[in-house]
């Protein structure tokens, strides 16, 4: 059904207006990643609000896009993702629009702007490039990250780790976590939405007795590797990066099944102004080249069909993340209140 809808959408001339025929054919054939060679050149000027991300790699992507498009000027305002989202909403309330595009490192911030009614609808041929479960009308995920349970391979095997995150506090395992960390808080938000407030509060209380606190999630993964704790909570890329630097590291990834413990969250982008240019700019981020670059260099998960995941990570098809509208993760306030009320923060 999705595919039929997608091809029908392609047939609409209005949706294809900004794409050359070759690109339209490529899309119709693959419904996956296009090559940058299939895209129209960018011409004109855009202002991008960029939430700080992967240590300069997003900057490399933006520079490459600029270099490839000499008639295109990209003005960038950088800042903390949540602060930029609030700025966009505040500017809109004041009747001002300075940003044409917003690229956020987490989808919660995208939700905040989308909920304010500021995001423009994206064409179906663009959103149709994304994998199922990641197609949204008003924004596009760029790359993903999955919640994992890194475990010490010297002490445990994968089958000793519960496949339900809710069972972890009773597992007898020592656990490392970073409750102050934004990704962890998004995970708790997902748990709250999936399991309910009460169950999440009880889980946090039980975990608080077993959990050893770390400032960040790389710290969690390193503690697992040292054997300081048996298992931890962290986004997948920390473990992959540690193993890239230390191939004999005693750590591997385990995944829970169909719960918040294996949530796939995403960075995302939305257009705030009308016209072809913001949309075509977004298309560049979904190209095979950019998706492959972010997968190989930043260990992020490509969310466009036909691009290989980062080395060392099983394909998304073998993992069973929960179904979740990622923009609902913007609802962070009740999560922080809950974490504070049970003494985790």
């Amino acid at each position: 059904m999705q595919r039929r809808t997608f091809i029908q959408a392609l047939a609409g001339a209005s949706l294809l207006g900004s794409l050359p025929l070759a690109a339209s054919r490529a899309l119709a054939a693959t419904a996956g990643a296009l090559s940058v060679d299939d895209l129209p050149p960018l011409k004109g000027e855009l202002t991008l609000y960029l939430g700080r991300g992967e240590g300069g790699l997003y900057e490399n992507v933006l520079q490459a896009i600029q270099k490839r498009n000499p008639d295109f000027t990209l003005n960038i305002r950088r800042g903390v993702t949540a602060a930029l989202a609030n700025t966009i909403v505040a500017e809109a309330k004041a009747g001002v629009r300075r940003a044409d595009v917003f690229w956020a490192v987490d989808s919660g911030a995208i939700g905040l702007v989308n909920d304010a009614g500021l995001a423009r609808k994206l064409p179906a041929d663009l959103t149709g490039q994304l994998k199922e479960g990641f197609r949204y009308d008003n924004w596009s995920p760029v790359t993903g990250r999955i919640r994992t349970l890194p475990y010490n391979t010297g002490k445990l095997s994968a089958d000793q780790i519960p496949d339900s995150v809710m069972a972890l506090p009773d597992s007898g395992l020592s656990i490392g976590w970073a409750p102050a960390y934004a990704s962890f808080q998004s995970f708790v938000t997902a748990m709250r939405l999936l399991e309910g407030e009460k169950a999440t509060g009880e889980w946090l209380k039980a975990m608080n007795k077993r959990g050893k606190n770390y400032a960040g999630e790389l710290g969690v993964v390193m503690a697992v590797e040292r054997g300081e704790v048996d298992v931890g909570f962290a986004n997948h890329y920390y473990t992959l990066r540690l193993k890239a630097g230390k191939p004999d590291a005693k750590v591997d990834l385990a995944f829970t099944k169909n719960d918040a413990g294996c949530l796939v969250n995403a960075s995302g982008i939305l257009a705030l102004s009308e016209g072809e240019l913001p949309v075509n700019f977004i298309r560049y981020l979904l190209t095979r080249e950019v998706q492959s670059y972010l997968a190989s260099e930043a260990y992020e998960i490509p969310l466009v069909g036909g691009v290989a995941p980062p080395e060392g990570l099983p394909s998304l098809a073998t993992i069973s993340p929960p179904k979740m509208d990622l923009t609902r993760l913007a609802d962070l306030r009740p999560t922080l209140d809950l974490m504070r009320s049970v003494g985790v923060l």
């Binding site: 991300g53 300069g56 102050a180 710290g219």
Partner: peptide, 23 residues
């Protein structure tokens, strides 16, 4: 949290021991 954490992922690929010490 706001600066070093953003680059330590790239750094750990180069020298895990150095990141461990800085952590």
């Amino acid at each position: 949290l706001n600066l070093f954490e953003g680059v330590e992922g790239a750094l750990i690929e180069q020298d895990a021991k150095l990141v461990e010490e800085l952590e």
